[in-house]
Nucleic acid binder design. Structure first.
Length: 422
DNA sequence: ATCACGGTTTGCA
DNA sequence: CTAACGTGCAAACCGTGAT
């Protein structure tokens, strides 16, 4: 059993560089939604000590000094580049799990490659040539180990971007695992790492050799699975088909403080429309929805107000219009004037698959006509771009919309963005 | 004492 | 000029009322 984890290096920054090669060799960051935090860093920026997830305003001085170039995130571009990469990789193996926008697992069992390290190099070469993106490849017996192998391929230059843990002599392997902090393990985050350290478990090797049963009692099942995976037994299966979500959340911070109900109405309508899209995409209906609004969580000088409301739906629905109507009703109930709201969102829950749904005695079932309408809406928006056809209640000026002060053109998804002669 | 539930917190990526 | 800090998901946890 061998699994490969292919992960793009500094993915968002690398995408920007593909279409703007002048950025190569320069310190570049990509910012999160609303230009809030640093979410991707070029190696030059990492070398300057800028940490992942730092609020951008806190790096402004350093950025000024070193001429760091900052881009707002351009999801249309990254999603398109991701699709290209995933399609290429998917063709190399009968089983692929797309784990996130920039990484996927491949089951190598079905790949008749004589030498997996060479196979990894071929992958790197092909992705570089066909998309312009740099990737690293980790290979091992389980997903957890493949993640770790990928980490080594990235951090240690002598691997040249490919690390096959199974091809490594056991002595050397233990030696390397000894030198990696336990917090690098997949599933061990900033909370668990210190707790493990209290027990004397500091390195990956320590965790690998820990007793799964006792750590399960102290922590959870997932901890036991992680330990077993580190020892080469598969506990976390490759999931080719993502299981349908149990809840769907859409929320955003505003580009500026919002005080008026009519603006919140627009934002909630927008978020609910997106949530309903996701809902229909996974072929579910929602049995309940949740609306929330909140003031800033960092600004302690301002009066705080957080509120939310969960509303059961009379019968499960996937109709944007019905969901929006209920959400706005809920919003009106929780809205208080006189606050500077910074964020709003919705959540759909009690999700049921479209097959075998229970009807309601007192509520009209969703009509075939409504289903057809939603289908058409989704079809147009998929083809012509997000939000081509939408509810007017989403508003037009959208003064609450997130900040994106410096976004690159969407080269691969908008004709107008191509720098052709006009 | 135990269970199902719903809401909240925790944790991760 | 100033103020400014992301999102989505699930599991664990906890209090409550019913059994």
């Amino acid at each position: 059993m061998s699994i490969a984890l292919i992960d793009c290096n500094n993915f968002y920054v690398s995408c920007e560089r593909v279409f703007n090669p002048r950025l190569c060799g320069k310190p570049v960051v990509v910012l999160s939604n609303n230009d809030g935090c640093v979410v991707a860093r070029s190696n030059e920026v990492k070398a300057l000590g800028v940490k992942m997830g730092v609020p951008w305003f806190k790096c402004r001085d350093l950025a000024q000094q070193h001429g760091i170039l900052a881009y707002s995130s351009n999801y249309a571009l990254y999603a398109d580049m991701s699709n290209r990469v995933m399609r290429i990789l998917g063709a190399l193996s009968p089983a692929q799990e797309v784990y996130s926008i920039d990484e996927c697992f491949l089951d190598l069992a079905g790949c008749h490659a004589p030498n997996f390290t060479q196979f990894g190099q071929d992958i790197r070469q092909r992705i570089a040539q066909w998309t312009g993106l740099p990737v690293c490849v980790g290979i091992a017996a389980t997903k957890t180990l493949a993640k770790l192998a990928n980490h080594m391929a990235k951090k240690q230059a002598q691997f040249a971007g490919v690390c096959d843990l199974d091809a490594m002599p056991p002595g050397e392997r233990d030696d390397r695992l000894q030198r990696i902090a336990v917090g690098e393990v997949w599933g061990i985050g900033p909370r668990l790492a210190p707790k493990l350290a209290d027990l004397g478990i500091r390195s990956v090797l320590d965790l690998q050799r820990a007793d799964p049963a006792s750590l399960r009692r102290r922590f959870s099942v997932s901890m036991e699975k992680t330990i077993r995976e580190l020892n080469g037994s598969v506990c976390i299966a490759l999931e080719e088909m993502a299981p349908p979500r149990q809840q769907i959340v859409c929320s955003r911070s505003f580009g500026r403080p919002v005080t008026e109900l009519h603006e919140l109405n627009e934002a909630i309508t927008h978020h609910m429309s997106r949530a309903a899209e996701k809902l229909r995409q996974q072929q579910s209906h929602a049995g309940a929805l949740h609306v929330f609004i909140r003031t800033g969580e960092f600004n302690r000088a301002e009066p705080t107000y957080n509120n939310s409301l969960t509303l059961p739906l009379p019968s499960p629905s996937d109709d944007t219009r019905k969901l929006v109507r209920v959400a706005l009703w809920g919003l009106k109930r929780i809205y208080r004037s006189g606050y500077r709201y910074r964020k709003a969102g919705v959540m759909l829950s009690v999700l049921a698959s479209n097959q075998g749904m229970q009807g309601d005695l007192f509520d009209a079932p969703e009509t075939a006509q409504a289903a057809k309408l939603m289908q058409t809406l989704d079809c147009i928006n998929r083809r012509m771009g997000m939000g081509t056809v939408r509810l007017a209640a989403e508003g037009f000026s959208q003064r609450w919309h997130m900040r994106r002060s410096s976004m690159s053109p969407s080269y691969t998804t908008r004709w107008e963005a191509l720098p052709l002669a006009s």
